[in-house]
Design a protein around this nucleic acid. Structure first.
Lengths: 102, 102
DNA sequence: GTCATCTGATTACCAAAAGTAACTGTGACA
DNA sequence: TGTCACAGTTACTTTTGGTAATCAGATGAC
């Protein structure tokens, strides 16, 4: 099934959250560390590399001091927006269900 | 973010594929083993238990010989349909992109 | 009657993925 | 001189996942 193909790209605990964070803003490494709550530098670095390989994200080194690196969704990355939005919608609803219960 | 909440429930390599398979039919354990390609009995059993705990799936033991067990999406599980559909759509498109390239 | 088979699992054992914490190197600032 | 922020990387441990064998209960073949 097609869902399986999608999950091959979006595997692991973090990719979807990273893409979601990049959906609305270009972010630097440290920004992402703060935005994607719970992720470690190692995993962020590894996942970003993988997303870059799959052409969902671009990495741009800026000529600042200290050096900063910007991560941005590619045009292709933006095609995931609909997926992210439906997940966000469901997650929001789920949180309401859970917290309403407790 | 809400996406994070959703991913807490849908974690691991298999849950989304299992839910996708159950989206259109009620399936037995052995059916799921065949449908969700690559999954092992151990993982299927474990993931189904987890989905049941999260009230996305119901488990029904039927009085047949040998015993058969049916898994079905709950009403709440069906609220994931939109997510699954957008994933399937993207996955389908992605496959076209990849296979078109090779 | 005993052996193999189908069902839905579970267990022991091993490999792969992810988490933790410390460290790298460069430049700014005090 | 010492410390901080930046973007990572490395060594080590823990968690998760995969493989293959096994379980129990019943059916059917021989």
């Amino acid at each position: 099934m097609a869902v399986h193909d999608a999950m091959d790209i979006l595997n692991g605990r973090w990719k979807i959250s990273i893409i979601a964070s990049l959906c609305f803003n270009t972010l630097r490494f440290t920004d992402l560390l703060r935005e994607v709550e719970g992720i470690s530098g190692k995993m962020l670095s590894r996942e970003l590399k993988n997303l870059e390989e799959n052409q969902l994200v671009t990495r741009t080194v800026l000529n600042t001091q200290p050096i900063t690196v910007e991560y941005e969704l590619t045009e292709y990355g933006h095609t995931l927006k609909e997926v992210i939005e439906s997940l966000a919608k469901w997650g929001h609803n789920h949180r309401k269900k859970i917290t309403g219960k407790l």
